[in-house]
Design a protein around this nucleic acid. Sequence first.
DNA 1: AGCGGTCAAGTTGAT
DNA 2: ATCAACTTGACCGCT
Length: 298
Amino acid sequence: MPQLGLCCLFQEEPIKFRVTTARHLGTLSLSGRAAKLSTLCLHNAQALRDAIHFCSRHGIGAFRVNSRILPLKTHPDFGYELHQLPHGAEIEGCFLECGQTAAELQIRLSFHPDQFTLLSSPNPEITRKSIVELAYQAEVAEWIGADVINIHGGGAYGDKASALKRIARAIEQLDGAIRSRLTLENDERVYTPSDLLPLCRAHQIPFVYDVHHHRCLPDGLTVEEVTGMALKTWNRPPLFHISSPKEGWGQPNTNRHHDYIDIADFPDCWRQLDITIDVEAKAKELAVAQLRRQLAGI
DNA sequence: AGCGGTCAAGTTGAT
DNA sequence: ATCAACTTGACCGCT
């Protein structure tokens, strides 16, 4: 049976990750900024530790770490290094503990940089900033032992073939910490599995199969076909995504995520696989628990 | 204490 | 040409 993964947040369990805004930091003195960021980062490292324990206690096999675990880490004006913060060493130590605990409890950790992180852009400055973002997440990934940093293809810019070539070129220039963790996922608007799988095969990048996106943006391949092709791209346990449409299928907008997973949306061919499935549902740990019960036939 | 406006980033597609 | 939707809630300033 697959391991189920929880994404970033909790619905009921009181584990919170804190953030701040650039605007607010701008109102503070230099030392005030460092103090504020230090407090938030330490809080978030401890919250991650709590999240890992929660997953272990509740039969959840994976946890996706929010991109803002270190708030504004790569912001052009307010970015920082951990050693510049009053509790920098303590924060790093807490992340290292998270890594040990996750390894002991066998909780798989991953990252999913958001839509601003693009390797397909024709604008080199956007690519450069994206790689800075990937480097930040890779640094935390090293501390905590996360093995996946998953991104989308991004835009097509009117010429998908050229955009795919830019992704490939950028991938070949990544350093090992990023490269060894980077994965590509099909999205609901531009890049289908058919678009990404050849690139993944050619450059040894694992393919994260999101079946909901595939149903929103089909490419002629069946769920079974893509599942088989996706599995072959992995040199470690495969990671897939599941979600259900908020308003149901056949409505104008199927992109929005439902609170829970409709078991009818869960591919039968996934039931016996040794894979991790991130559950993208707004009810968070409650949705994972419900899906877990349904898969167990309870 | 409670409320509501606001929040770094890029691209697409609806209007 | 403009703007919401992606993720999505939490923060902060004001009353």
